[in-house]
Amino acid sequence: MDRISFSIVVATKSRVRLLTELIESIDVARKNYSGDCEVLIVDDSIPEESEAVQAVCREHDCKYIFYENSVSAKRNYGVLQAKNDVVLFLDSDCICTEHIIERYAEKYTDEKIAAVAGPLEFVGEDTWFWKAIEATPFLTCFYLPRFLPKVEWGVTANFSVRRQVFLEVEGFDETFKRPAGEDVDLGMKICEKGYEINAAAEALVYHSKKTWIPVKAMFRRLNFYGTADCDLIHKHPDRGDVVLPKRSMLYIIYALFLVLAAIASGKWWVLAGIPLVFLVENIVMSHLVNRLSREKKATLCQQFVAQMLIHDSDFAYLKRCAVTGQFSDIRKQMIYYMGQYNGMLEIGSYNTWLQLLLLMGIAALIVFLL
């Protein structure tokens, strides 16, 4: 029986050192696989860094492609240049394990299996801010292929797909200009065609924490995630569900009530209640989440930062809904996997009481002023 042939596609920019580490790990994996495996590096770095990337590609038998475009477009172009049966997407801030190609090949046992997703494990220094990131729900999807036999989509930092199927579903949607949402959309398009996406728990990739822990970059990343949520619900309306009101939406409503109360009463000190409500709500929610957590707990301050990250994503979602006129989607939540309901409902019951108390307090203040 002929071995499945692989084309590894890496879209990159300005990450020479990290990319070199990835390519060196790919080298080991290629040597441990008896089938054909090519590597395509799609890059749009500045000239000095581009020359360094080309030198690394020559040294390790990788095909260098210069293509200046979005991440989605670069990956699509890489697939068009690929020649083999299965395309494996890896990110330039990752390192793959030595038998990853073999582990992926073992999963393609049936033509109905169109794609296989592997898990990621974040490695590097556990900084104070990283502990806050871990307290958010945003890392869960990176670990799912380790625990589930099948998934509905996979993170593109470690995801393989039959090239023919990828082209059949028209690849990544390039309207996702920012690096968020296009991998979810790809998986859903594959499943909508009746194909399956298996998980390969041992096809592990190590993801560097360094590209996540800069505070500004992380808030920017979650802003992208929130925007992508809105676009995904618009494109896949069956994945948007009305579960619980977004806390950020409720906060906006509270702020409007306080502004109106200040205008009506002429007592502008009431506006001080806007940041106060936000502060109190997040401190109480941080305490509740820490108490309910079954895993390693963050400190109250770290949990507070985690709540800020969640608000950042939610505010971006609300802004995108308003800008695109998707007002009916403001009350919806993007459902990425079925187990997501459990955590949402567990926290939601406590959150409902908290929001009710805040609403009663604001109502009492307005009655007192007027």
Rank of each mutant, 00 (worst) to 15 (best):
M1F: 08
M1W: 03
S5P: 00
V16C: 12
L18M: 12
L22E: 04
L22G: 05
E24A: 07
V28N: 00
K31A: 00
K31S: 01
S34L: 08
I41K: 08
V42G: 05
V42D: 03
E49R: 15
E49T: 01
S50H: 07
S50Y: 03
E51S: 12
A52Y: 04
R58N: 13
H60P: 01
D61K: 10
N69S: 15
N69F: 05
N69D: 15
A73Q: 15
R75D: 02
N76Q: 08
L80E: 15
A82D: 03
K83G: 00
S92H: 14
I95P: 00
H99Y: 11
Y104P: 02
E106A: 05
K107D: 01
K112N: 15
A114F: 05
G118H: 07
P119K: 10
V123R: 12
E125L: 11
A132Q: 10
A132L: 05
A135R: 12
P137D: 09
L139E: 08
F142L: 08
Y143E: 14
P145C: 07
R146E: 11
K150M: 10
K150E: 11
W153H: 13
G154I: 03
T156F: 05
V161S: 01
V161R: 00
V165R: 07
R178F: 10
P179A: 10
G187N: 06
I190F: 04
C191D: 00
C191H: 06
E192F: 05
Y195D: 03
N198G: 09
A199S: 15
E202R: 12
H207I: 11
T211S: 13
V215K: 15
A217Y: 06
L222D: 02
N223S: 14
G226L: 05
A228Y: 06
I233L: 08
I233M: 15
P237S: 04
R239P: 00
R239S: 07
G240K: 07
G240F: 04
D241S: 14
D241V: 15
V243A: 09
V243L: 15
L250S: 13
I252P: 01
I253C: 05
L260A: 13
A264E: 09
A264M: 12
A264C: 10
V270Y: 05
V270W: 02
L271M: 12
P275Y: 10
P275E: 06
I283H: 06
I283N: 05
M285K: 14
H287E: 07
V289Q: 14
N290P: 02
L300S: 09
Q302D: 03
Q302E: 14
Q302I: 02
M308R: 11
C321L: 09
V323Q: 04
T324H: 10
T324F: 03
G325V: 07
Q326Y: 11
R331D: 11
N342R: 13
N342I: 13
Y350T: 07
L358I: 04
L358T: 02
F368E: 01
L369A: 09
